[in-house]
């Protein structure tokens, strides 16, 4: 009766428990409590929400461990924290703090322009961003136990989140309809490990849980992503950059559960106050786009 820890089943399993839920970016223990009280399934502890990272410019790094620990103390739900792409030492530090999930995130400035972290080496599970199925399966190959489509963080514009979710889900549908002799060429075309391509085809979905992120600002945005077929949503700047964060957070949680019920969506969308101001993707210069970070 040997006890096993840190297996891939357990890493993946926590993400399965978050399904149908909302993971919220928080920058203080007070925010974390508001998120928990509003029904968040987990919080992402960070120093600045993506909209502020975008506005401030400069290099964005892992948050101060002190802040992360304070947030871990403040809530009973899982706490996630971000490290830079390829920065395995930041990941080691986050692991030593005992966070529940590490987000190897394009929202921070990448530390390695060729390689991501080898995530199988860690006991803590990782979530990574993707824009398409190939990128998703490369991350799973490196050990990611959860995927989120990237969207474009800190904009409040849902268009990229929709594009990335449609791309991933569309590629899975295409994969299921291919004859067997075309599967290797498909794996080559999307740059994904062949074994994971086969597994995805067999399952008819990604081998790990897939959330949507990047630009979700309203209950309707969250329900839109759920109806497209993702397992849950991350909301970053959309909550604490809005007029009434607690009310909006609560409404987005309800919309994620009742994503198929327009009457409830109408009800929860009423009188939410100002949404975050937002920036249209098409107004942002190419060089400032975050989603293209990741290889």
């Amino acid at each position: 009766m040997e006890q096993q820890v840190a297996t891939f089943k357990i890493k993946k399993g926590l993400a399965q428990m978050l399904k149908g839920g909302v993971i919220m970016d928080v920058v203080t223990p007070d925010h974390a409590k508001i998120a928990e009280d509003s029904g968040a399934v987990a919080v992402m502890a960070l120093e600045r929400v993506p909209a502020d990272i975008r506005a401030d410019g400069g290099v964005a790094r892992m948050s101060d461990p002190e802040l992360i620990l304070q947030i871990m103390d403040a809530v009973s739900i899982p706490v996630m924290a971000k490290c830079r792409i390829g920065h395995f030492v930041e990941a080691q530090i986050l692991e030593s703090l005992g966070v529940d999930y590490i987000d190897e995130s394009e929202v921070l400035t990448p530390a390695d322009e060729a390689n991501h972290i080898y995530k199988h080496d860690f006991k803590i599970p990782f979530v990574c961003g993707c824009r398409n199925l190939g990128e998703a399966l490369r991350r799973v190959g490196e050990g990611a136990a959860m995927i989120r489509t990237k969207g474009e963080a800190g904009t409040g514009d849902v268009v990229e989140a929709v594009r990335h979710a449609r791309t991933v889900l569309g590629e899975i549908r295409r994969l299921q309809n291919l004859p067997e002799e075309e599967l290797m060429a498909f794996a080559k075309e999307i740059g994904a490990p062949y074994a994971l391509v086969l597994e995805t085809r067999e399952l008819g979905r990604m081998p790990v849980v897939n959330f949507a992120a990047g630009g979700i600002a309203t209950p309707a945005d969250a329900a839109l992503m759920m109806q497209l077929g993702v397992d849950g949503v991350f909301v970053g700047s959309g909550i604490f950059k809005s007029g009434d964060p607690a009310k909006r957070a609560n409404a987005i949680v309800k919309a994620t559960t009742h994503f198929n019920n327009p009457e409830i969506l109408a009800e929860v969308s009423r009188n939410l106050g100002e949404a975050m101001v937002g920036r249209q993707i098409t107004d942002i210069p190419e060089a400032e786009l975050i989603a293209s970070r990741g290889w």
Partner: peptide
């Protein structure tokens, strides 16, 4: 008792 074994790093599998 919630989270009685600790955080995610303490999650485990066992045959019973």
């Amino acid at each position: 008792e919630r989270n009685a074994f600790g955080r995610q790093v303490d999650s485990f599998e066992i045959d019973l």
